[in-house]
Every structure is written in C-alpha cells, then in structure tokens.
Nucleic acid binder design. Sequence first.
DNA 1: TCGGTAGGCACC
DNA 2: AAACGGTGCCTACCGA
Length: 660
Amino acid sequence: MIYLITQQESLFPYENITLITLSEAIQKLKQYTLLGLDTETGGLDRFTKPLLLLQLGTFEEQFLFDIISYNNLIPDELKVFLNEFLGTFILQNAKFDLGFLFKQGVILKKVYDTMLAEIILTNGLQYSGRDLATISYKYCQISLNKEIRGLIIHLGLTQEVLEYGANDVKYLIPIKQTQEILLQEKNLLRALELDNAFVIVLAYVEFCGIKLDYEKWVEKTSKNQEKVLILKDELEQQLFEDKKYEWFSGMQDMFTLKFDCLLNWDSPKQVTKLLKSYGVNTTIKQFGETKESIDAKVLEPQQEKFPILKKYLAFKELQKEISTYGESWKRYINPVTHRIHTTYQQLMDTGRLSSGNKHDGTPNMQNIPSDHETRSCFIAEAGNIMIDADYQGQETIVLANLSKEPNLLKFYEKGLKDMHSYIAFLMYPQIRICNLDEISEEALVSIKKNHKDKRQIAKSAGFAIAYGGDGATISKNCNISKSDGIFVYNSYFAAFPEMKQYFNYVFQLADHYGYIQFNNITQRKYFFDLEKNDYFSLKKSLKDPLFAYNTPEIHELERAAGKAKNEIQRKAQNFCIQGTSSDITKYAAILFFKEILKHQWFNVVKIVNLVHDEILVECPQNMEEEVKNLLILSMEEAGKPFCKIVPLKADAVSGTYWIH
DNA sequence: TCGGTAGGCACC
DNA sequence: AAACGGTGCCTACCGA
C-alpha cells in the first residue's frame, strides 16, 4: 500500500496510491518500531540543494511525503515524529540522508544502515556492489529500477517516480532481517552496532564542517609560490653554470638575458635523467631488484655530496604544498556555511575512516600538513575556540593490551614516557646505564640526549614491526644496510621476547579461521577469499589425495602462496592494531556526541574533524573547560573495554585555531 | 582528448 | 621465498 502526503492535491489521481493527511500518516506510522527511511534530494549538498521527498515505510506500507509541496521543509508534525521515534530507522547509506535531516533540525536517534552492514559482512571479499539495487537483489531477489535520484527533478512527482520512491524503502526491513542472520552467524552484530551508532556522529562531523581562513591560506601559498620561483631560477642557473646546455633552448629572455630552460622540474623522468648526469644515485632496491627512484628518501642522504639536491628537495616540498594545499581549496568552501565539509568513507578494510572524495569534490582532511603555518589556517569562528584531543600513543597501547608482552607492559607499569628511548634501551645492551628493573624516566632522558641515532632507529623499528615490516623494511626506512636492518629487527624481538609469540598467534588464528578478528569486543573481521587467495588454495590442494607434486604449476603456486602468506601475516598484525584503535576512536566520538545531545549542544559544540586518534572540536569560548573535560572523559571511557591492562589516556589542547 | 596508472608525498 | 601498515591527491605519462 502506497500513501502520498502532499499539499499539492491537484496532482491526483494516481493508480494504486492513496492520498492521506499528514496526521493520518503519522497515526499509522506510530504503530511501528522498525521503519525504512529514504530521501530524495535535489543534489548532494544539504546546504544548497533542497529536500524533495521523504519516504518512510515497511514491506506492507510506504508513506511518501511530498516535501516540495511543503516548501522543501519537513512539516512540524513529521519532524516531531522523526525526532521522538523510539524505534530504529533503516537506511541505505544513512550518512547522506542524515545530513539533509540535520539541516531541517531532525536528529534520528537510532539507525540501521544496510550499506554498512554489507561492508562489515563482506570486508576483504570481492563483492558485486554495495548499492541498494545490488543489495535488494542479493537478499530479496528484487530488481530495483534505476535510481530515482535525478529522475524526480526532471519529471516531478509522476506515478513512476512515486513507485520508485516507495520501492526504495519497501525492502529495507527484509534486507535487515536477512543480513542479521548472517551477522549473527559471523559474530558481527556488535561491529555493526558500533558503526550504526557512529554513522550519526560522522554525519554530524560532515555537517559541522571546518572553517578555513582562506585569506591567510592564500597568503601562505603566495609566499611559497614566490619562494618556488626563486628556487626554480636558482636551479636553472646552477644547471647553466654546470654546462648542462642540452636542457636549454637557444632562446634568450629579452630582459634577464637568461636562457630558456626546457626541463620540467615536475617530471620525475626528466629529473632522473638530469640527476644521473651529475652522478647522483637514483635507484632504490625493491623486490630484490633495482628500480629508478628520486624519492626524498633516496636523495636526502646524498645532499652533502650534490648541492643541487638540497634545492631540488626544497623545490619539491614547496611544489607539493602549493599544488595540494593551495588556492584550489577555494572550491571546497561551501557558499552557504563558508566552511569546508569533507566526506568521510566510514569503513576501510581496517575499519578506519578515510576522507575526501573526488566525485563530490571534497578534500582529504586527514592529511593536512602538521606544520603550524598550515594548521593555523583552520580556525574557530569568532567567539569560539578549537579543542584538539588525541590519544597518547594509541596504537602502541593497543598493541600492549593485545599482546600482553611483559617488557612492553613494564614500560606502562613504571609510568615511563619516552617509548622510543625505552625500546633503544632494550635493543642495545651497550647503552644500558642500569638494569631493566631500575629503569627510570631520567635514564630514558639521558638516552634521548646521548644516543639520538639509536633512539631514532628504535623508533622506526617500533613502527615498522607493528605494521608487519621486517629487516628489509627497517633498512629502507632508516637508510641502513640490509644486514643492519635485519640486526635491528632481531634486536627488537630480543627486546620484546614474547612479541613474536603474539604475532605467531594472530597468524595461526587467521590461518585456521580464514579471517582476521581484530579484537573480541567488536569482533570486527577481515575475510580472506579462500578460493582466490594463493596461500589458502595451496593449503586446500595439499589436502587433496590426488594432489600432483613437483609440477611446474605447483612450484609457481608455492611461490605465490609464500607471498600470500606474508600478506596474511602482515595484515593479521596490522589490522588488529589499526582496527582496534579505530573502533576506540569511533566509540569515543559516539560517547562525546551523546553528551552533545544530552546538553542540547547540537550545532553549538561542533565536531569538526576526526583524524584516526584525534578528535577536533569547536565550541563557544566560555564552554572551553567543560567541553574539554567531557571530550577527554569520553575518549578515556571509550578505551576501557578495549584496553583493560594498560589504560588509554587522552590529551587536549585548545586555541583559536587547530593546534596539533 | 580522455581515462587509467605510477611515482611521489601528505597524514596517522 | 618474497615482500615492506592504512588512506587520498597531485602531476606526469601512456595508450586508446
């Protein structure tokens, strides 16, 4: 049964569509505890594009609210219903609709997102699509016709458009029911519960946006543009002095009398050719073979020997700053809010967020350079203040809790601060000024002062190993020989003797179950495709009594399986750490958003960015202390279920701009 | 001219 | 034996 609620009754008659009043519709809707919800809008941006249609419904009944006829505003009676509904709304890609509802002053309290469910169920696996059409077909064998988005703006509320609109909510409950059977089987209900709660917060972060001081931003870029011109000039002058005439045309500038340089300094290919002619090493070892590269990593160690590299590296750095973080950002500023509203992708393979989307033209807000000059362009509105809170050593503490490695736990038990020096202390017996049990922060401070090099290597080793790297990774990251890299790798495991057992254990689990389970709280998972993964298919073949050994195909498969095994090991290590960290930050944001709602601070206390272990908040100046305390409290509370041995601590700083 | 890929680099 | 955690954006480059 399809119902239409409209103030434009002259549209009638339609076949199979019943016209009812707003009150009648709300009356009927009140009997449900589970409702599908969808909206049709005039575009992607909730601030500049109108809400056209709002659909609510079940398999049996769908209610279509013609919002156009209410001047694109949700009528009050419906608004109250949506705000006060105690059941669950089911949406496909809820974040999108939630943004338009926020704009209208509607805050849904509980949602179930069929798209998030689908991602969580199939994380790591090949999937045919996560759009509503694919999901409807998969669970209900229903082929939904083309997207009505777009159609409505051209056709208006035709019979066809209304039927499509009704279909978009009709199957949401059956889809949810079938998904939940699978979620139950795979123990993924809690992971989805977290992400269903989080999607409302994430929609809020996108809705809040962040203020960019564009004038200051342009000033900074212009300054860099001047600098880059000078550098380019100096580079070309150097080229000329070094008699690299092949890079010049015969043309001379009329005023400066300089020759016209043909080299494109943005072309790695051309620059490689040039640097080679100076005798610079432009190669890097990768996959056992030598590869061309002019990475900063490759060139940096040669700076003293080849002065031109200093200028080139400086040029590259500025060029990156100008092209990625320059004037192009004007297009990101919303004409209505004058703020930047990024879009986040909620579920990467690790469970982390990502940010930025080239289709809707939003920037990545998670890789803003951390220098003061850049960050200080992101500001609070007049009268407001920015509060930036982050977890102290989130990933290392998560690793400590997951692995329970005794020497790692000892660091926290003793309340020590400088982890990198501590690792150096354990890795290099020759720098031990006391034995392990007597270690103090003073001892670590002295290591930081006297053994900078060893501390730096320990730092890199700590990161590389947590990410699943090995001796080769360390040698690359630290620019040391491979044998030294392997030595450092071995020293790390000597320093943390039970870490290897933990890594073996997570691999054994992945090997046995065919998936990685990140932690036992959310039980979020990454599934290996057992058919397509070379390691698992070889394992399966070996169980076959008719398995043919010693054929060329088998040797090829063994080689591929070795590679796949390595990948499984790496992911098993890394995803548990990254994924659990991500669960914690999401949970923290949920708890903090609860406070915002509880205190009726919606749109007053804004969450303006999330960067993995960091939550950036903007609020009125006079609320600074209260909000800061609640934020830290939320973050530390969120850590508790996941970090039961070593607790997570959060730190906050505030200012008129983004300080981190 | 377009679209996809690779190299490089920003963040955590 | 074989490879070096996760993202997204910029430019150059290459082939259709």
